[in-house]
Amino acid sequence: MRPAVDVSVGFQPEPGSFGPVTQTDIVRFAGAAGDFNPLHHDADYVSRTGFRTVIAMGQLQAGILAGWLTDWCGVEHLRSFTVRFSAPVSLGDELQLSAEVIDVRTEDGVEVADLAVVARCGQTAVVHGTACIQRRSS
């Protein structure tokens, strides 16, 4: 068994990053996840829509943000993860990943921490949400 992280309100794990996002990153994720919407790989198709370039599927940045979080806290300690997609991610964008503990409490007899999580491109939040993880009580 791996211990849960020992955190209190205000704690921030070491920030993460990803990118610049390439067409290869998007295609690799499309193959892994089975998302073959042409908006994510077909530039001719995209040019007929309102987007400037191919955009990443939200599940790419959600998966990167969730994976970055569980690399730190342990995937077996993640109880829930919610994300809202607030802006598209285009080719060349760089993601900055961060989180902060906003509450600690007991849920079903388990010590847990709630975190605010966000992926930003520059100043723009592209994905933001919350995570609930098990924590070690000190």
Binding site: A33, L60, G67
Partner: peptide
């Protein structure tokens, strides 16, 4: 495959 596509490092995967 999914681990690599999401740039996740933990060896438990």
């Amino acid at each position: 495959e999914f681990q690599r596509a999401t740039s996740t490092c933990d060896p438990v995967h």
